[in-house]
Simulated assay, not measured.
Amino acid sequence: MHDYATRILKLANGTFMIKGPWFTNTDMLVTSDPANIHYMLSKNFSNYPKGPEFRSIFDLLGDGIFNSDHELWELHRKTTMSVLKHPEFLPLIETTFKMKVENGLLPVLNLVSSRREETDLQEIFQRFTFDTTCTLLLVYDRESLSIDLSFVPCEKAFTEAKEALFMRHVLPERVWKMQKRLGLWKEKKLSEASKVFNEFIYKCLDLKDAVLNLMIAGRDTTSTALSWFFYLLARNRRVEEKILDEIEHQLGGREWGSFGLKEFEEMVYLHGGMCEALRLYPPVALEHKSPARADVLPTGHAVDEHTRIILSFYSMGRMEGIWGGRIAWSSGQKGGFPVAEG
């Protein structure tokens, strides 16, 4: 779907409007134009909330930061930023991740490697970020990342919920709401996931909506970024070798356990590779907006309160007009990381 939208956006110079039947008020504007995105996310931010349709689709998130607008969003943002900027937060992240790498990630990968088995790296990263996020937010390590990779209901519920929420973007609202009432297909899975979330989080604390939003952010975005990054590395040995050389240089003969945030800040090539992976495969591929009042975007497109706007960050990372020249895609000759030529 993202690739199809990208092809259409390239033909339409970065923005196109889908007109629904006149009696349904379902016009949809899709854009990857930097001027439009800056206008909605910064210059005229107050006029572009997520809107009621977003809250309907993501009702699972309750009144958390991803589902809120205006004053409630500001409150969530200030609360979250106060945590992220706390002087003890970065050291806590560093300690938590090191412990999980040593006690969870490496034992699993070493076992798989010694047996020369295939494994689902995305699942391993999802379990890794689930455990670290639970430790940071709930002071509780569920230890889903273990050698036996046992079934953990709450960890799997995130995947079920994510798939159901994606289908709500594809299906007409009446269809998925009917499925929700009847308990059918993905909506049944979403309902079951919600019950699992309640049971798991309420055991730890009462702020369910706020914590669930942060858990989704911590588990899915990071695990997705890591999965795509290593997928691209696997297709480009030259880049992998350069990153390994940079790590060896920074270590200087020391054990990996001595690595800290300071050392990572000095690894320029690794940072560039990760940024390139994020450009091509952003963990949040799109975002919804709905104008509070009628407006005209910088590209000249008129929108009103009935217009559903999709900001396609996935497409934005693939626009030659933004990055310059021709994008050379990974195909063996150029390796796994596309580069902008020109």
Rank of each mutant, 00 (worst) to 15 (best):
V196A: 11
F197D: 09
F197I: 10
F200P: 03
K203Y: 02
K203R: 14
C204R: 09
A210F: 03
N213P: 06
M215D: 02
M215N: 01
M215T: 02
I216D: 00
R219C: 00
R219W: 08
R219I: 00
D220W: 07
D220Y: 08
S223P: 12
S223F: 12
T224K: 01
A225T: 13
S227C: 06
W228R: 03
W228L: 08
Y231G: 09
L232R: 10
L233T: 07
L233Q: 05
L233S: 04
A234R: 09
R235F: 07
R235V: 02
N236E: 15
R238D: 15
R238F: 15
R238Y: 15
E241V: 10
E241C: 09
K242M: 14
K242N: 06
I243H: 02
L244I: 03
D245S: 12
D245W: 01
D245G: 12
E248L: 13
Q250V: 12
G252H: 03
G252T: 06
R254N: 10
R254G: 01
G257S: 05
G257I: 05
S258K: 08
G260H: 00
G260L: 01
L261A: 11
L261T: 11
L261N: 01
K262W: 00
F264L: 15
E265W: 04
E265G: 14
E266M: 01
M267G: 12
L270K: 09
L270H: 04
G273C: 15
M274D: 03
E276F: 08
E276R: 07
A277S: 11
L278V: 15
L278R: 01
L280R: 04
P283L: 10
V284A: 13
A285F: 01
E287S: 12
H288P: 01
K289V: 00
A292I: 08
A292R: 14
R293E: 14
A294P: 15
D295Q: 15
L297W: 12
T299M: 13
